[in-house]
Design a protein around this nucleic acid. Structure first.
Length: 877
RNA sequence: GCGGGCGUGGCGGAAUUGGCAGACGCGCCAGACUCAAAAUCUGGUUCCGCAAGGAGUGUCGGUUCGACCCCGACCGCCCGCACCA
């Protein structure tokens, strides 16, 4: 791991003298109290103004606010405050994604009940969030574990069920054979159960599914038809790949006469996206779950053993992909459809997935990575059938590696000479003509399994009756509340709900016979798939109020981590469509604009024994990194995402305590582009504190400046340099906030501070205008400082209610421009010309410049490139 | 394994999207203030070179009057992968 170079200066910490300049500890709580007293951020019922719904992904109540949260909510807060200042009716709510596994883990470890643990965390985190000074309408707050929320989720599920969006079927879970419990992927560490250490197996359970694949086509179409124009291209691309639409061929291979498939099947159906490589086929492989494999296993012990072996891989895609490619030769061969007499062996293979296509493939080792590895291992033929452009058929080989690119088909009978894409069409046409298969469309997307065998989630409102089957809980019986359990119940593996007969055993809603409740709870992704609608349109008697939802949705700006690019965002898009179908919403896309922010990182520290150390245990001075307590040397490791396991976490509370909320907000937005990772450094936070104090130093002598100068009256000196700088700053900052370039907005503010400081000779009117603009543009970033400053210079009301300053276009126009002049691409001189100068005049000015003459002496001028307003390049030799 | 992203001074980053590479901040250096230090203020700060000048945006190659930006190959790091949220 690379050692990290860090500044060696001792950390600055403001002392009493500094606090006498500007004391956030007194000033910040004061303004937060005023905002609360005046209900400043309450969402207005006034529908005449244009609305703006800004939402950050709501937090999981893990216990403490971390800097990632601060970054996320600070960004949303800048947008919310900015849009308020621009006259929008802003909705900016906050809530808690409160169900989930960590609460049960905590129960196991500490004996605290998940409910108590969760609500205590919410209370602590709410307190911490409020200290950041967010412009949030707290009256909208809810947690997904509130019965008042999840009862409406149950209602939505029943509606979806009625509408045919819900299905029950079998699927695999990770099973810990020692603890006898279902494991989350997260609880599987290198193939072993996290508590028992036992090798995890796959086990089939009957589970609930939402049929997201039915909407795959529209979920895909919306990515490209402009409905998601406000989303980053990379997220749309990831979703497109995740949905994974492919056009291919489903076709049947006949078993060679003489070999009989168990169960009597005469053929096996495969799916392929590369029918152009059919002549390169050298084997057939089926998934371990394929009926053919299962049938063979029934009569053949060794096949059953192999299949059982395959089941010992976890359920995650990564685990399946990375497992060594293994196969089991079945006593079956198929006929090649085009080549008389060619026989292909049939295998069961661990890398074939039953859930995709038909669960069977033909292997073409010459042109597929996995098939190549498989064929090499089992000594199968590797035939090249696609010739790359520019290659010679005699020399080209795929013996050592497959060729995956485009090319011309050869060694392939009637397909010879066609391009790969022409050959796909030709092969499909031929197979269709032979009545052996047909062109089909496949999606990689699988249906959404929503059952979880856990306590701390929303109960699924269903009852299992031996006579009536699976029966929905009647709406009058909603909510199905989570029953009370002892905290001790979590120490026993498995789902406590299974062990509560008094809750579990109920009469069937239809026949009143003995029946059992569904004891699975919902995937917490469901909770987060409609919370935005509930924020906008909560009512006590239904999931959402249609009129409110119609006014507020879609969310105008959604902000959250890139780690949610696929699952959460795709599920929310699906759920919105399902809610529209059930008559609750009018939109199908929940988030008009999406911004994905980067992570907060920090250097990692270890002691000589390799134990992780907290940043607060480490001091960095001229002697390098040392332990505060003992003085021993500390190893400085890589800069990584803040995580508890590596202890590279900094508590926002400490920073707020030390420097104030404005400083933490300013720094977290200033250092990196919002979409990129930001490294937290104490020095950076200290720098932000200095900035806060510096702005106050500038404001302090200007008491009542706004009262003394009537800014609505004409300025005394329209062309003054300071006025130009002020309006250029307003223009730049406004554009940067709208474009989510907060770091650049902040750089512009710094630049303006430097200008303002130097403009000591400017008239008082222009200075008042500059300060008035400055205070209003810093308000979204450092709201407490802005309020204090606004009051000090005599601004009317609260600055959070003040209108955003307008840039005067007349002051943005430049009269002259300074152009660099290059000679043969190297910058040699600079000329200043009128902004309206003609190309001829610019050329003239460039050629007569003494530096240009010096560098072109003795050369012939071949060409002059003039890019108006940008650059001049003289080509000479 | 598959999918997505990133790579620019000592550090975070900027570059109007093909037009002055290094805005702004941190750090560092020098000066002012101070008995002194911190804080504050002023100036400097990509590298090599006294200078003229030269080199330079992960590496190699290409397109162009002109490339951090576009194209090709490679190297390194990070994120996601369906039961973590």
């Amino acid at each position: 791991m690379e050692e990290t170079a860090l500044g060696t200066a001792p950390f600055f910490c403001p002392d009493e003298t500094d606090m006498a300049r500007y004391n956030p500890k007194e000033i910040e709580p004061k303004w937060r109290q005023r905002w609360e007293n005046q209900n400043a951020f309450a969402t207005s019922a006034d529908r005449s103004r244009p609305k703006y719904y800004v939402l950050e992904m709501f937090p999981y109540p893990s216990g403490r606010i971390h800097l990632g949260h601060v970054r996320n909510y600070a960004m949303g807060d800048v947008i919310a405050r900015f849009k308020r200042a621009r006259g929008f009716n802003v909705l900016h709510p906050m809530g808690w994604d409160a169900f989930g596994l960590p609460a049960e883990n905590a129960a196991m470890q500490t004996g605290a009940h998940p409910r108590d643990w969760t609500y205590a965390n919410i209370a602590a985190m709410r307190r911490e969030l409020k200290q950041i000074g967010l412009a949030i309408d707290w009256s909208k707050e809810f947690a997904t574990c509130d019965v008042g929320y999840y009862r409406w989720q149950q209602k939505l599920f029943l509606d979806f069920w009625k509408n045919g969006l819900v299905e029950r079927r079998e699927s695999y879970v990770n099973w810990d054979p020692v603890d006898m419990t279902v494991l989350a992927n997260e609880q599987v560490i290198e193939g072993k159960g996290w508590r028992s250490g036992a090798t995890v197996e796959r086990k089939k359970l009957s589970q609930w599914f939402l049929k997201i694949t039915d909407k795959a086509e529209d979920l895909l179409a919306a990515l490209d038809d402009g409905r998601l124009a406000g989303w980053p291209e990379n997220v749309r691309l990831m979703q497109r790949n995740w949905i994974g639409k492919s056009k291919g061929l489903s076709m049947k291979f006949r078993f060679v006469s003489g070999t009989t498939a168990p169960g009597g099947a005469g053929e096996v159906e495969i799916y392929t996206t590369r029918p152009d490589t059919l002549y390169g086929a050298s084997f057939i492989a089926v998934a371990p779950d394929h009926p053919l494999a299962q049938a063979c296993a029934a009569g053949e012990e060794s096949a059953a053993v192999f299949i059982a072996e395959c089941q010992k891989t976890g359920t995650s895609q990564e685990a399946i992909d990375k497992a060594e490619k293994k196969g089991f030769r079945l006593p079956l061969d198929v006929e090649h459809p085009f080549v008389e007499g060619r026989r292909l062996p049939v295998f069961i293979a661990n890398f074939i997935l039953m859930g995709y296509g038909t669960g069977a493939i033909f292997g073409c080792p010459g042109h597929d990575e996995r098939d190549h590895a498989f064929a090499t291992k089992y000594g199968l033929d590797i035939l090249p059938v696609v010739l790359p452009p520019g290659e010679n058929a005699a020399d080209f080989s795929v013996a050592s590696a497959p060729y995956l690119g485009p090319g011309t088909i050869y060694n392939s009978g009637f397909l010879n000479g066609l391009s790969d894409s022409e050959a796909i069409d030709a092969a499909i046409a031929k197979i269709e003509k032979m009545a052996r298969g047909k062109a089909t469309t496949q999606y990689r997307l699988r249906d959404w399994g929503v059952s979880r065998q856990r306590y701390w989630g929303c109960p699924i409102p269903a009852v299992h009756c031996a006579r009536c089957g699976v029966v929905p809980v009647p709406e009058r019986d909603l909510p199905v509340e989570l029953p009370e359990v002892d905290a001790d119940a979590f120490k026993t593996p498995g789902n406590p709900l299974d062990r509560l007969p008094e809750w579990r055993d109920v009469p069937c809603p239809e026949c009143s016979g003995a029946a059992r409740r569904e004891t699975d709870t919902f995937d917490t992704f469901i909770d987060s798939s409609w919370y935005f609608a509930r924020f906008a349109a909560a009512r006590d008697d239904r999931p959402v109020d249609k009129a409110d939802a119609d006014y507020w949705l879609p969310v105008d700006q959604y902000i959250g981590g890139i780690e949610h690019a696929i699952l959460h965002l795709l599920y929310a898009r699906y759920f919105t469509r399902a809610m529209k179908e059930a008559g609750y919403l009018s939109v199908e896309e929940p988030f008009a604009n999406l911004f994905t922010q980067g992570m907060v990182t920090h250097a990692t520290y270890k002691d000589a024994q390799g134990k992780w150390l907290l940043p607060e245990e480490v001091v960095i001075d001229s002697g390098g990194a040392r332990r505060v307590a003992t003085g021993e040397a500390v190893i400085v490791g890589a800069i990584e995402k803040m995580s508890k396991s590596k202890k590279n976490v900094v508590s926002p509370q400490e920073i707020v305590e030390k420097y104030g909320a404005d400083a933490i907000r300013w720094f977290i937005l200033s250092d990196s582009p919002p979409e990129r990772d930001v490294e937290w450094t104490d020095a950076g936070a200290a720098g932000a504190w200095k900035l806060v104090a510096r702005i106050w130093d500038l404001i302090e002598p200007a008491k009542d400046a706004l009262a003394m100068h009537d800014l609505s009256a004409p300025p005394p000196d329209a062309g003054a340099g300071l006025r130009r700088a002020t309006h250029a700053m307003i223009d730049a900052v406004t554009g940067d906030i709208e474009g989510f370039r907060f770091n650049k907005a902040i750089a512009r503010i710094y630049e303006f501070l430097n200008t303002l400081k130097k403009a000591e000779t400017a008239d008082q009117w222009s200075r008042a205008e500059a300060l008035s603009a400055l205070v209003r543009v810093i308000a979204p970033f450092t709201p407490h400082l802005a309020e204090e400053s606004w009051a000090h210079i005599g601004g009317a009301g609260l600055v959070c209610n003040a209108v955003w300053p307008d840039a005067d276009a007349a002051l943005l126009v430049k009269e002259t421009v300074t152009l660099p002049v290059q000679v043969n691409g190297k910058r040699r001189a600079e000329i200043t010309v009128s902004a309206a100068a003609e190309t001829r005049a610019v050329e003239e000015a460039a050629l007569t410049d003494p530096e240009v003459i010096r560098h072109t002496g003795g050369l012939t001028i071949r060409k002059i490139v003039v890019v108006p307003g940008r650059i001049v390049n003289i080509v000479a030799n």
